[in-house]
């Protein structure tokens, strides 16, 4: 119920942000931000009630992770909007959240059901590992939305000078890079805490499990972006493309790896 409402509000927020970008009317901006805040409140309420009902943090399966992922993207976006005092990126960034939310609401009832906590998940590292990874993913989602905005013609003016209501591309790129700078340490912390947890649970900190490999691939992708960023020839649209692709890698690590494990019949300890 709460999730359905939150999903609806997310759609409403995206439409309002698009309308606001087109018309520039103040009330549409407030409507967009208001819808986003309500959507965030509903997701938060759903997660809290789910956690209370389950007796553990709602971080134990892909459905719950997806809801937290949406929460993280929206929180990071609202921080960006507050510091930017601009709403033009809202529609683009919330598209990333909508993509993940759509994955969550289309899960089967079995996948959405509250499950008992598995013995392997009885660890304080669960919260630290998943929450730090989520904050990284949330920041990368925001960066991808900004990257998309940078790539779509007509949404940003080139160079550093402003041009009417069009956002300056340099400003978008700076905010995109700021989101990357925020996300990368959180992803690193997520991998670090995952390694400590794996050592405690399985006696090895790294086992080339498909999920671990793709966490490494994601980390290497963003490391690559951070290394290419100082090169002048890679700035602008090329960097934005890499950031958008990076979010694709994040999504593959999240939803693609279980599919890969099933399809190629691999063994993975990350079945939850």
């Amino acid at each position: 119920m709460l999730i359905g409402l939150a999903y609806g509000m997310l759609w409403a927020a995206i439409l309002a942000y698009f309308f606001h970008t087109r018309t520039g009317r103040g009330w549409t901006g407030w409507l967009a931000t208001g819808s986003t805040v309500i959507s965030l409140g509903l997701v938060t309420a759903a997660l809290v009630s789910r956690g209370l009902a389950a007796g553990h943090w709602p971080l134990t399966n892909r459905y719950e992770f997806a809801l937290c992922f949406v929460w993280a993207i929206v929180v990071v976006y609202l921080l960006v909007e507050t510091s930017w005092r601009e709403r033009q990126a809202g529609a683009w960034v919330l598209l990333a959240a909508l993509l993940v939310a759509t994955y969550a609401v289309t899960r089967s009832p079995d996948e959405q059901a509250i499950a008992w906590l598995l013995p392997a998940l009885r660890s304080p590292w669960l919260q630290i590992h998943v929450l730090s990874t989520l904050l990284g993913y949330g920041a990368f989602g925001v960066a991808a939305g900004l990257g998309l905005m940078r790539l779509v013609p007509g949404t940003a003016s080139e160079g550093e000078g402003g041009a009417g209501r069009l956002f300056v591309s340099g400003e978008i790129e700076r905010t995109m890079e700021r989101a990357l700078a925020l996300g990368f340490p959180w992803l690193t912390l997520g991998i670090l805490t995952g390694a400590i947890w794996a050592q405690n649970a399985w006696g090895r900190y790294w086992g080339w499990d498909p999920k671990e490999v793709w966490a490494l691939v994601t980390w290497l992708w963003y490391l690559l972006i951070l290394h290419l960023r100082p090169l002048r020839s890679w700035r602008g649209r090329r960097l934005a493309s890499l950031v958008v692709v990076g979010f694709g890698v994040v999504l593959f690590t999240f939803v693609g790896v279980p599919w890969l494990v099933r399809t190629v019949r691999l063994e993975s300890l990350h079945g939850f």
Partner: peptide, 26 residues
Amino acid sequence: LKVAAVLVLILLLLAALGSCFPQIPP
């Protein structure tokens, strides 16, 4: 810097490729 970037790219592509095949368990 470009050499390091190319090596990082090669490594991540190789890692992604390796994830598609079952690995001999220890």
